[in-house]
Design a protein around this nucleic acid. Structure first.
Lengths: 342, 342
DNA sequence: GGTTAGCACTCGACTGTGATGAGTGCTAAC
DNA sequence: GTTAGCACTCATCACAGTCGAGTGCTAACC
């Protein structure tokens, strides 16, 4: 659809603009050397590219800047995935070289390194516990009225919650309940827990315990929100302040308000498909970042998506570099996951 | 030290400036009515107050703004603690009216309400676990190589960590270790755990288990950082963007970088003494907020400080309103703590 | 026909100037 | 001790003029 020369020029403009954040003129492209034409020729092509919707002109006597469509074409057809520097590879690997502690930490740490290397903001969604299964259930009374409930999944994820103990229930009864739940529910996927609870546990419990109904509602309240709960890790949120396009306090505010709002973030980042995904401008699912780009990578185990790591920056993002890092990271994460879950 | 008239004028200037964020002139004070003097008289007093260091003048032909010393005097001697509105009291109480779940949630929720009511940023330090004692210890193997360790305190706080299992240790041995630890260590304050571990547990363990040394290092690594670990909850971080003094991206950046750095925050907020504390400008312990004010309140149990909740805003803060809220909150929190810990 | 030099034109960014007005300090009168 | 009056200061704003980067178009060139 575009001629080779048009592609070269578009590529040059996007590259220059990404570096300088300033409209690119015909003369500066001609001088670069890799496009061997005079400014006049380039101007003609630029006019064509603008007509086709790949470029925009802030005002008559300014150079051109890429449109969203232009960025899209650049990402899809032009971007060069230069190799990462030794230093960058090293720092990416350093995350996984550490002693394994919690998987959440790995994800969080990855986000942190990513934001440092890219100078953009990174957003990581912790592993989805939805598909995990119950590994252990525990109920520890703190006093006569409250107890701590702990749910551990087979992925090593721990959730805890303080719950009131229904009146008239003794410690020994609680213990029996915990035993029944553990023998009956261990290995059951979290999202099936509640169904299982009613089908199998109800009558079983009535053999050992008096206030069955109260116990059931208590246990249900514990299991209720665990399957949907997700951790969000932000890193490098101040990085966007260094970008010239975000010198305006209003823009910063709308973006930041999104970053503060966990559910919206989960929607924006978590909806990304498996693999590496580039969302440019309005392709994003939230108004606040309609002049940002986001590059996401999912981490999976056995083809099952666990979570997502995203980098958020201006549409004028260093796509090549970031995509590269995400690729690299994706591979490392996959390796790590395999080791982690065996 | 100040005459009654000077105090009135200083009070009027600070009040006006807090409202308008603009230098206050002699005429506008004269017109307010509560100071019944002509602009000329007020000008004379203003010149004196400036000489004494309570006021500053941005430039010759501008009005006056309070200096840090002026704010300090205002807070110490002049500020009127007007009553909170019914709505405000209601919203503050709403936090504690909810069903009690985790204490962390209460703290977090309090911070959130506080930032909404004040339109400033609030910072809450979760309860210090240092003084809590061990309620329960657990070690759940996930596979042959890793296990989840869970530490529960008597305050209902749960910490968890994934640790590698030393090679050559069987599941049944792990179980024995857990039993020994629970019988010997429950009730011991967290900060004494490690000492206790070496004094009492070592030889006890050798009766049941083969690789004692490896087990000990593993257990130690679990207990290592738990006593210093603290949660920080931020809320309303975008609120400062609405303040006219923070329209400058550079200023925003330095403040935000502080907010992103948990250890520094803990130092800044956590160093506040028991009770309500107002820190104005350079009184704060960090350069980044040397033109901010912070009002902190601690929450305690039996005179023992557990944590701190702070409100961060410009030095031009609505001291009266915020101090009032903090007072109110402090009382509510104390009540809550008593109920919570029994 | 594609390419390029030349040129008039556009328009934002910057600079300098003058007007405006809020606010002051000082003096003298009350 | 208080206040009216007045000259003075200085940030802010609107306006005009200059500059220069960059364009679009035309005509000449290969």
């Amino acid at each position: 659809m575009l001629t080779e020369r048009q592609r070269m020029i578009l590529n040059a403009i996007v590259d220059d603009y990404i570096r300088s954040a300033e409209p690119v003129g015909s003369r500066s492209i001609s001088k670069r050397g890799d496009v061997g034409y005079s400014p006049a020729t380039i101007r003609n092509e630029m006019a064509d590219l603008e007509e086709l919707g790949f470029l925009e002109q802030p005002h008559t006597s300014a150079g051109r800047i890429p449109s969203h469509k232009g960025y899209r074409y650049y990402v899809d057809h032009l971007v060069r995935l230069d190799n990462l520097s030794i230093d960058e590879v090293g720092r990416l690997k350093s995350v996984f070289a550490e002693k394994i502690t919690a998987m959440e930490e790995i994800v969080q740490h990855t986000a942190s390194i990513l934001s440092q290397l890219t100078n953009y903001t990174s957003i990581a969604l912790g592993p989805e516990v939805f598909n995990a299964s119950l590994r252990h259930f525990q109920l520890l009374p703190l006093n006569e009225e409250t107890a701590v409930a702990i749910v551990v999944t087979n992925t090593g994820h721990v959730e805890n919650k303080t719950v009131p103990i229904p009146p008239g229930i003794s410690a020994s009864e609680l213990e029996k309940v915990v035993n029944v739940l553990n023998t009956k529910l261990v290995g059951v996927p979290l999202f099936k827990l509640r169904a299982q609870l009613y089908n199998e546990i109800g009558q079983e419990l009535s053999k050992y315990v008096s206030h069955v109904q109260e116990m059931m509602t208590m246990v249900e309240s514990i299991l209720a929100d665990d399957s949907s709960h997700r951790e969000v890790y932000l890193s490098g949120t101040t990085n966007i302040l260094a970008q010239p396009e975000f010198q305006d306090v209003d823009k910063i505010k709308t973006i930041w308000e999104l970053l503060e709002e966990t559910p919206a973030l989960i929607k924006v980042v978590g909806s990304a498909p498996t693999g590496i995904q580039v969302r440019i401008g309005q392709e994003n699912l939230h108004e606040a970042i309609s002049n940002c780009s986001m590059i996401t990578a999912t981490y999976t185990i056995d083809g099952q998506t666990l979570g997502t790591i995203g980098v958020l920056g201006p549409t004028r993002m260093e796509y090549g570099k970031v995509i590269n890092m995400m690729n690299h990271l994706s591979g490392q994460l996959a390796l790590f996951m395999r080791r982690w879950y065996k």
